[in-house]
Design a protein around this nucleic acid. Structure first.
Length: 785
RNA sequence: GGAGGCAUAGUCUAGUGGUAGGACGUCAGCUUUACACGCUGAAAGUCUGGGUUCGAUUCCCUGUGCCUCCACCA
């Protein structure tokens, strides 16, 4: 006998069962068709919130459906512990500064911290029922990932696609370190906006006159008629005397200042863009300690130089006016000092020449929802420069590169040296060009996207034993959220295409974000994080997944407690039907009657619809169909057959079991715990042989079980019952109150007993009636007494 | 500034070129041998303006509001 349903106890026990039976392990020996999933590795930057549960559940629905559809599912899980968020986390947790500790020791600390989060994360992902194969777990700083990233770089270098170029980087002159955009803060300062007359027609307003010696071009807006005739001309820079060209670019606001902008290397972000986009020359005015390098101002801080230059400009009569404005500047959040741009040699991957190829690959990929394709296209079309992959940080995967001390030639590591740390390891041979054995190591590390862009290849073990290359690659599916289409999805296509000439996956499924109850994204700084752990504890995994399955693919969805309640109700209802069957059905053998053929046909049509929706990755539609059918089944079919069951007539048993199992299977991808529990208690070894519902076969639609005449008759009987229910309600009667006689105008085709039983009718006769059942030709006469 | 998305009852949401479906909430009726975490019934809705059409909530344009990504703040 089944008792109450305690989700805390059940979910824990079922999760153990899955673990013990290895339900979700990839079957290496099987010849079944493989379905491989390129799971996003979450960063270990802290605690998981319900937004994570939301998007990972959505991928899990698909994994589970595919598994039940007979695929050998390759579903790995990853953890991203490479990159700045991890660096910041580890610095905070251990109260250290990465630069001071040094790279080797810091990576050790990262590994330690990772272990802790790995356990915590695994616990939560298991608790929410993610059906990944945990033996395939990878991390982005692991040895394998380092080998893959470095091998990738070596191959790209050999292809001639990796090159070095002097490029500006955000730099903190005080800490003497590169800074990422994430570490910037805005600060407003009072600054003088200085108008400088270069010539008769050229006047420029600037907040940074000290960068006059670093001017490489002057820009005007292409729509700006006032300045149009100047484009292409040259003009002399005051005080410094060099000539610079005047160019046109959209980014200039013609209403701001004089409508003419000086482009220096480098004063701000736009300068960098222009420098890259127009291949401008480089004039450095500030060094990495934040001091001027220009003759006459050498060693001065920019602000001192600014004063001196303005004075000199005034003496020369170049300054027409000055205006104090509020100016937003970027400061380093750690030390609050203004950041500068300084120039470093950095590695790039050349890909601008591949735009057409990349667009073609984007077209080849099947996108769900398909409009997400636009974002990719738009991004590729707008690319203006190559992919910079150098980062001047301590923590990360190093480039497998040294430079010859003598001639400067690049020396790549040998493949069998990987993973290599050039700061510690040495090249195997001398310089190929000059024979020198003295080398300078590359101190920079790779951008994290240079590694994450390899996840399909890391999973396939491309860089090592190539174990899964032919088997899982190209992968079947990339599930991810829409915000990183231009990063993760795009860079993965780039790298995998360069290395394998193939599109890395057949399909991309793009999920939305789980938002807070007000519809706002969850951010630590907003304080609106809803904790994953606590939510699972409070409502159970199935209801949380129910919420995740209720929103359309690609759409954001705000977290509503009432969705959890709806999920809990569904679980409860499933459990109660299970109890009913458990109490009343000893076997699942019997001969179906008319009404049984009716619900069977109904269930198969629901199955057909759900399957089609699932095949199109419309899991929310599939869930809806399954759920709707289940409530229909409970409220109608069960009412029809109760009187037979109570009368110890077992003729409905087989249908009851068969249809309910079908419902469980349709809901299994969404509510894996409750459906499993019921399957184990009721059906395993009886109606199905599979050890778990999650490796049982997704039912197939078979027309031969669809009896169209029974379907019509059943629908008719159901309408009659609906009418009688309303009639009883209008007469303030209980639904099971006895009715003496029902007169029906039509032949109910063998369903008379069912109608009588369901509505507690004493006698059913044929004859004319005055009441009309809506949507039918049936007339009734109801006699209560 | 560029690109994309969204707008449906009090709330969350589905769907459709022809009477808009569900859930929560609300109101009313019902102790009905699985379930009051239930059953039955009721009230309540297509953002503004324009166009295409016999007919638009759906398709097109426009406005407004919200969201995401990218860019910008000389």
């Amino acid at each position: 006998m089944l008792g109450g349903y305690d989700y805390r106890e059940v979910e824990k026990r079922i999760a153990e069962l899955w673990k013990k039976e290895k339900i979700y392990d990839f079957d290496e020996k099987s010849s079944r068709k493989v379905y491989s999933i390129d799971t996003p590795p979450p960063t270990i930057s802290g605690h998981l919130h319900i937004g994570h549960l939301f998007s990972y559940s959505q991928a899990d629905f698909i994994a589970r459906y595919k598994r039940m559809s007979g695929y050998n599912v390759f579903y790995p899980f990853g953890l991203d512990n490479n990159g700045l968020p991890t660096e910041i986390l580890v610095e905070k947790e251990h109260n250290v500064v990465a630069e001071k500790l040094g790279r080797e020791k810091f990576i050790e600390l990262v590994e330690k911290t990772k272990d802790k989060y790995e356990e915590e994360y695994k616990k939560i992902w298991r608790a929410v029922g993610i059906s990944a194969d945990w033996s395939l777990l990878y991390t982005t700083i692991s040895k394998d990932s380092r080998i893959a990233s470095q091998l990738s770089f070596i191959e790209l270098h050999e292809m001639g696609r990796a090159y070095r170029k002097e490029t500006p980087t955000l730099w903190c002159p005080k800490d003497r370190t590169a800074v990422s955009q994430m570490e910037l803060q805005d600060k407003t300062e009072k600054t003088n906006f200085v108008y400088i007359k270069f010539s008769k027609d050229v006047e420029i307003a600037t907040t940074r006159p000290e960068l006059l010696p670093a001017i490489v071009a002057i820009f005007v807006n292409p729509e700006d008629k006032k300045h149009a005739k100047l484009v292409g001309k040259q003009v002399k820079v005051p005080l410094f005397g060099n000539e610079v060209g005047i160019m046109a670019d959209q980014r200039v606001d013609p209403t701001k200042g004089t409508g003419m902008v000086m482009c220096c290397t480098f004063g701000d972000q736009t300068d960098i863009e222009w420098y890259k986009a127009y291949n401008l020359s480089l004039r450095i005015a500030i060094d990495d300690s934040g001091r001027m390098t220009v003759e006459g101002y050498r060693g001065m801080k920019p602000k001192e130089a600014r004063q001196k230059i303005v004075e000199e400009l005034k003496k020369g009569g170049y300054v027409t006016r000055e205006q104090e404005i509020d100016h937003d500047i970027k400061v380093h959040e750690r030390c609050k000092n203004e950041i500068e741009f300084i120039v470093k040699e950095q590695w790039y991957i050349r890909y601008l020449d591949l735009k057409d190829e990349l667009l073609r690959l984007g077209k080849q990929l099947r996108w769900h929802p398909d409009y997400m394709h636009h974002r990719y296209d738009n991004w590729v079309q707008g690319l203006q420069w190559d992919w910079g992959i150098s980062r001047q940080r301590f923590f990360g995967i190093p480039f497998p590169v040294w430079y010859c001390k003598n001639c400067g030639e690049v020396k790549l590591a040998d493949r069998d040296q990987l993973p290599v740390n050039p700061l510690v390891d040495k090249p195997k041979l001398g310089c190929a060009k000059c024979g020198s054995t003295e080398f300078v190591p590359e101190a920079d590390v790779m951008d994290t996207w240079a590694t994450s862009s390899l996840t399909p290849l890391i999973n396939a073990r491309w860089a090592t034993d190539k174990k899964y290359m032919g088997k899982i690659y190209p992968m079947s599916l990339r599930p991810q959220a829409h915000d990183i289409i231009t990063f993760w999805l795009f860079t993965t296509i780039v790298k995998c295409y360069l290395h394998t000439k193939k599109l890395p996956w057949a399909e991309a499924v793009i999920s939305g974000h789980g938002l807070d109850p007000k519809g706002k994204p969850m951010h630590k700084s907003e304080g609106n994080i809803i904790d994953a752990d606590k939510t699972l504890e409070k409502f159970g995994a199935d209801p949380v997944r129910y919420w995740a399955s209720s929103s359309t693919l690609g759409e954001d969805s705000s977290f509503q407690e009432k969705d959890m309640i709806s999920g809990q109700r569904l679980v409860n209802k499933l459990w109660n039907v299970a109890k009913f069957i458990d109490q009343n059905c000893k076997t699942f053998e019997s001969k179906p009657k008319e009404i049984d053929r009716w619900i069977t046909a109904r269930s198969l049509y629901a199955l057909k619809e759900a399957t089609e929706l699932f095949e199109n990755f419309n899991y929310s539609g599939a869930k809806r169909v399954a759920e709707e059918f289940f409530w229909f089944f409970s409220d109608n079919y069960l009412e029809f057959i109760k009187y037979r069951i109570y009368g110890k007539d077992s003729s409905a048993n087989a249908t009851l079991g068969y249809v309910f199992l079908l419902v469980l299977k349709m809901l299994a991808p969404f509510m894996p715990f409750a459906t499993e529990e019921i399957y184990q208690k009721l059906f395993r070894g009886k109606l199905d042989k599979a050890v778990s519902i999650h490796v049982s076969a997704w039912p197939t639609f078979d027309k031969k079980w669809v009896d169209e005449p029974s379907l019509k008759k059943g629908d008719m009987a159901q309408k009659v019952i609906e009418y009688i229910r309303q009639w009883k309600h209008n007469n303030k009667m209980a639904l099971n109150a006895e009715l003496k006689e029902l007169v029906v105008s039509e032949d109910l085709g063998g369903l008379e007993e069912d109608v009588k039983g369901a509505m507690n009718i004493g006698r059913l006769t044929r004859g004319s009636g005055t009441l009309t059942v809506p949507e039918t030709e049936i007339h009734l006469e109801i006699k209560a007494e």
